[in-house]
């Protein structure tokens, strides 16, 4: 990795850890600000405007980040924050839709896509932040589309296309004797 980038990441990590520590002591939150900005930008891409809803959600992310401290030296605080945001959303979705995240990852991701697309409702961040359940399940299910159905396949054995001289007369006799099985 670019050494400049690694240095930058280490600096951010340090700032975050200090800020989280300071916050616990009622001090400055300067290290959190760039992370917050980034997460707000992230939510804006999901069509969520800056406001109380978004802030409530970010407060949870921040709380979780604090519990994670200290972060691994090679981890980026912004990356960790994004992961935590998604973990919060996924946990809420799993409960709302009764999805087992370990067994049905793709369904959970589809639910997340449905939620982030805004198809269910605009005020979902508030519900996620307050861990409220029951209101969105039906709406979410209506906009969750499975990519593929349950598998139920058939074998497709490779055919023999021998390129020998055909023996047309014998072939003809063979063909006459053959009838499709379902027609019998």
């Amino acid at each position: 990795m670019d050494p400049e980038l690694a240095g930058e990441r280490a600096a951010r990590l340090h700032a975050l850890q200090r800020a989280m520590g300071e916050r616990a002591d009622g001090g400055s939150i300067a290290g959190w600000e760039p992370i917050r900005e980034r997460l707000l930008e992230y939510l804006r891409l999901c069509g969520i405007a800056v406001g109380t809803q978004a802030e409530d959600l970010l407060a949870i992310v921040r709380q979780r980040l604090r519990q994670m401290l200290p972060l691994r030296q090679d981890d980026d605080p912004v990356a960790a924050a994004v992961r935590e945001l998604l973990a919060v959303i996924d946990a809420w979705l799993a409960e709302e839709l009764a999805i087992d995240p370990a067994r049905d990852r793709s369904r959970l991701l589809m639910a997340r896509a449905a939620l982030l697309a805004g198809g269910a409702a605009d005020d979902w961040p508030a519900h996620v932040a307050q861990n409220l359940h029951g209101r969105f399940a039906a709406r979410l299910r209506a906009v969750m589309v499975p990519a593929v159905p349950e598998q139920a396949g058939l074998n497709m054995p490779t055919q023999d296309l021998s390129l020998r001289a055909p023996g047309l007369i014998r072939d003809r006799r063979d063909l006459r004797s053959r009838r499709p099985s379902s027609a019998d």
Partner: peptide, 13 residues
């Protein structure tokens, strides 16, 4: 998201 170009410098070293 952590490292895309316009994110750099967001955190004040």
């Amino acid at each position: 998201w952590a490292q895309m170009p316009d994110a750099r410098g967001g955190a004040d070293p």
